[in-house]
């Protein structure tokens, strides 16, 4: 075939037209805002300053969710998971600095921190799961995982800002494990096992709105002043007294990633406790805005396809004639 300037220009024009057509029909979709929390959402309030690191929650979680002890030492004597994993849904981790003697102090201190699903208001895992195996309950806001749906692509693991979903890499038929806020216990009228057994009320269950108020109440009390702390459920009569700690004046999870349903209080800055500073706009909302911008009602791809069809038909014909 002879190369002709005319042909080329025609093709180029047609191609550009198709692309332009696609671009023009792409109405700039409105930005997808952060999702909002269901009014009856439930969650946990974890207060590092009253946690004594006893790991009762870890043990109770094992019982409630039928997970098995995990060993991190060679002797395999103790159940001591180093982190949440395919075998462990929650762990208490330790912050230690310098001499590590003073509780809830950043310098020369130590502190405990719970690791489990934060149940984001606008969870990345739900947004990115290709097969809807991750879901957010419209009433309770619990982020659950359904193994029967899961294909094991692990995109949720890659996308979760808190490294929560955990995969069983050591199994031929693996599952994904994450905290589901003991929804099976809640269905029986019980509360999550970790909150149920916590001896100090460091892990407290309740409606997120009430948990937020409780967190604000604690933050408002000056350090050293006696304060009362409920156990099990926020507002329960089972309270104990304890001098208020010097809190970092922020409840983690009130703004991060558009909010989470597990709130954290701490005496040591959260960045040092494994919870990075995160902006308010959720990654899910941003990614979805971009995808939606491109694929809004599939108008752009369809328009582009129509243009491509037209141009390709014309040009294949030309080639055939010339051949």
């Amino acid at each position: 075939m002879a190369f002709s300037r005319r042909n080329f220009l025609k093709g180029a024009a047609a191609g550009s037209a198709a692309a332009a057509c696609a671009a023009a029909t792409t109405t700039p979709a409105e930005a997808r805002e952060n999702l909002t929390m269901p009014p009856k959402a439930v969650g946990l309030l974890y207060d590092s300053t009253i946690c004594v690191g006893c790991k009762a929650c870890v043990v109770a979680c094992r019982d409630a969710n039928d997970t098995h002890p995990e060993f991190s030492t060679e002797e395999k004597l103790w159940d001591n998971p180093l982190d949440i994993s395919g075998k462990t849904i929650t762990v208490i981790k330790m912050y230690s600095e310098g001499t590590g003697q003073h509780k809830d102090q950043e310098k020369d201190g130590f502190a405990f921190m719970k690791r489990s699903c934060l149940h984001c208001v606008d969870p990345s895992c739900v947004s990115v799961c290709p097969v809807t195996a991750m879901t957010k309950d419209p009433v309770t806001g619990i982020v659950s995982h359904e193994p029967a749906d899961c294909i094991g692509c692990r995109y949720c693991i890659v996308a979760c800002p808190f490294a929560v979903p955990q995969f069983e890499f050591d199994k031929a038929f693996p599952k994904l494990l994450k905290c589901q806020l003991c929804k099976h216990r809640q269905a029986e009228g019980k509360i999550p096992a970790c909150a149920e057994v916590c001896p100090t009320g460091a892990t407290l269950f309740g409606p997120v709105t009430a948990l937020k108020e409780e967190a604000d109440r604690r933050l408002a009390v000056p350090a050293g002043k006696p304060n009362t702390f409920a156990r099990k459920t926020v507002g329960s009569p089972d309270v104990h007294e304890h001098p208020n700690a010097a809190y970092v004046q922020h409840a983690y999870g009130t703004t991060e990633m558009g909010g989470t349903q597990m709130l954290l209080l701490s005496g040591v800055p959260f960045e040092k406790m494994g919870y990075p500073k995160l902006r308010e706009r959720s990654y899910a909302s941003e990614a979805e805005t971009i995808q939606e911008g491109i694929y809004h009602d599939l108008i752009a791809p369809v328009a582009l396809f129509a243009g491509l069809l037209y141009v390709a038909r014309k040009n294949t014909k030309n080639h055939d004639e010339e051949e």
Partner: peptide
């Protein structure tokens, strides 16, 4: 029956650190 305020409970060395090399 009120809770004790544990003293000397600096956690054991084997306690999981915030950042574990994994």
């Amino acid at each position: 029956h009120s809770l004790a305020e544990p003293v000397y409970i600096t956690p054991p060395e084997s306690y999981a650190r915030i950042v574990e090399e994994q």
